[in-house]
Write a protein that binds this DNA or RNA. Structure first.
Lengths: 237, 237
DNA sequence: GTGTTGATCATTGGATCCATTGGCTCGGTC
DNA sequence: GACCGAGCCAATGGATCCAATGATCAACAC
């Protein structure tokens, strides 16, 4: 978009500020997003405006706006005259998001590959090294996310980046539950897929890249479908 | 999403109400969206909170929230401590959106086709009849939009519907400008593409459907790229 | 004993008022 | 004559207060 400010990191939005945003609504939205992505706020959990306002030393007004921002990013669900809840997916909704990822992320990759700096590719490879050496669940989530998003870093379409990040955000809680449950077993498959993907990127081969990536996402989706119990838990709305 | 209310028509959102929404922010957002899609508010035009508030007999607060809703839908750009503008695309951004459409809408179609009711297919065909008989620009825009969105009506993924509508919304002003400029010339191409698409739908052939649709969108994108002057006009931000 | 209806209470939506930021104009100086 | 700076003004961001809606719980009727 030409009018208005650009984007700032994971912050799709208003002030183009990331962390210590000048506007309170942005700051609060960022904090809440962190809490949701880190699992502090679980899917289905209620968010009370007053409590959040007190915790941030602000009035309820910027909290209301922050909730709208997060709603736009798919992290929070609002109900008029009722309240706000951390977004919760059932198995079908999660599968649907993965299917959309299977279409959009290969596109993001193919737009990114020709513009990716060599140093970024280097960094991607380092991340995969770390993934293979790592044992911790939360560390894996962070590394995996950074690796994938870096693959799309060259894509010149901010709206696309925004959408992809949105997908990753809304499914993060379920990826965490999945990894926690399965542990490191069959991790070699992920590693093999990542290595093939990275090799395609290094060769600047968009066709192979798209194919490996789509396969990677699809296989993950099928794996996830094998564990419907991941979507039962948590407080009901 | 399980928590929270569903969607209502073109209204991605909160109260699940469409037009006469109970909550003022929704009502105002709907009105502003109408004005933007109808071309009453042009891309790049500034939106003053106070003026909108006065026009709707409300305070500035629900207007602020309405602007955030529209920002989430990509129709409005916000700048902290500065104001709001109707979203404006340059040629590159518009092309980018069309490229995303080329990936997502075929998917929406293939998810929709197996679930489309015969009566809906009938209605789609009627719309194409009307398009071929029609001469008016604004009427064409409305018919074309309804036809395409109806093709995806069977798709069971609300998030996907939301995205597709968002794409159509943000590019609407430029489609209008394009049709206004070119007039009915080469309209036969659109008609042929539509007829082939509808035939594929009638045969429940998702592969053909995806192919024709992707081609249709791509050709439109290339046509649009031939008229960069469409993106010059209008007030600057 | 169960279903329904009423009232109370917590929570959100909206209005008004104040603080703060950014842009614009006018004046001065080099 | 052009560039820089200070001050004013308009428009947004935020806080507090009030109204309305929805949920919970208890009492009553069947």
């Amino acid at each position: 978009m030409t009018a208005g400010a650009g984007r700032g990191g994971t912050t799709a939005g208003i002030g183009s500020n990331g962390q210590g945003a000048a506007v309170a609504s942005q700051r609060i939205a960022n904090r809440l997003r962190q809490d949701i992505l880190a699992g502090v706020l679980a899917p289905g959990e209620r968010i009370r405006q007053e409590e959040v306002a007190a915790r941030h030393g602000a009035s309820r007004l910027p909290v209301r706006e922050a909730l709208r921002i997060l709603h736009a990013q798919g992290l929070v669900q609002l109900k008029a005259n009722s309240g706000a809840w951390v977004s919760k997916l059932d198995l079908n909704e999660c599968q649907a998001i993965y299917k959309m990822r299977e279409r959009l992320e290969p596109f993001a990759l193919s737009e990114s590959i020709p513009r990716l700096d060599a140093s970024v590719i280097e960094r991607i490879e380092q991340l995969q090294d770390e993934i293979e050496a790592n044992q911790d669940v939360d560390r894996f989530l962070a590394l995996d996310r950074e690796l994938h998003l870096l693959c799309y870093a060259g894509n010149p379409i901010p709206e696309l980046t925004e959408m992809v990040e949105r997908f990753w955000n809304t499914t993060q809680a379920y990826r965490r539950a999945f990894v926690r449950m399965t542990g490191p077993q069959r991790m070699w498959v992920v590693n093999a897929e990542h290595r093939l993907l990275i090799d395609a990127i290094r060769r600047r081969d968009t066709v192979d890249g798209e194919r490996f990536l789509a396969g990677h996402i699809r296989r993950t989706r099928v794996s996830l479908a094998g564990h419907p119990e991941l979507f039962d838990a948590g407080p009901q709305p």
